[in-house]
Design a protein around this nucleic acid. Sequence first.
DNA 1: CACTTGACCTGTCCGC
DNA 2: TGCGGACAGGTCAAGT
Length: 290
Amino acid sequence: MPELPEVETVRRGLSGLLPGLKVVGVRHDWAKSFPNSPNDVEQFLAGANIMDVRRRAKVLMIDLETDYTLVIHLKMTGQMVFVGKQRFGAGHPNDSLVSKLPDKSTRVTFEFDNGSHLYFNDQRKFGWVRLLPTIEVPNIDFMKKVGPEPLEDSFTAKDFETRLRRRSNSGIKAVLLDQTIVAGVGNIYADESLWGAMIHPATLVKSLTFHKIEILYKELRFVLNLAIEKGGSTDRNYVNAEGKRGSYMDFARVFRREGLDCPRCGTTIEKSRVAGRGTHTCPKCQKLVN
DNA sequence: CACTTGACCTGTCCGC
DNA sequence: TGCGGACAGGTCAAGT
């Protein structure tokens, strides 16, 4: 379940590992994971030097010197793990979810000129890698529709309110998960920020005051920043560019904590279904008031 | 148009 | 122990 903090953590890891390397080989075992033609790969990827690694919303972009970009969406179970000539994890044997790559969930393998590899692993095959001309990346449907980055300085509480109110009649959680309203929020940080703001996830946007929205804005930015600081959340599959887990789940207040005590009031945390997703709330702190 | 549901997939967990 | 079914949850397409 890579959301903004997980993808940002992978980006930071890869940006310290990939630039300067030259791609010398690419293999994939599942066409939907990397739908480009062999001709594209041969012309624009093979032999290309890596320039930069960027992120927009939950999408990673690896820019190549050929003016092409590898655009990557990890969806739920995707991983991008770099393995140097000297195997990672030697000093951290218990910190990795991936001991030996490639493995049965490896969909795409990139080989570099110094003998290192980058593996796109994806158990459920929902994720994808696409090779596109760099100037075309902003024109793909997802990029045209996606909302602003919530951690940008220019993104204000007022902007947040304006965008949320485009969907006044929807429940706030469904709206937070809508990538066209705000970029990068998924199930974990929706639940965590709504708990922080003491808002029930099914509360209709139209029944939220600006004051409440401003609190939610602060809580959302708080949890996203904290999660980046902790290297993201490893619920099941997520690992960073070095194959290591994130530790935000140690700090989670409600997510996957059903049956445990609310850290604010001690009431037992409940799990339900809101907006079609497993949803975690404190029934005392987050009353539904529509 | 606004909103909800189903499809895409595989692995894990739970009850029988 | 084996087996079926529910569940995990990001995004797009299809349905209401």
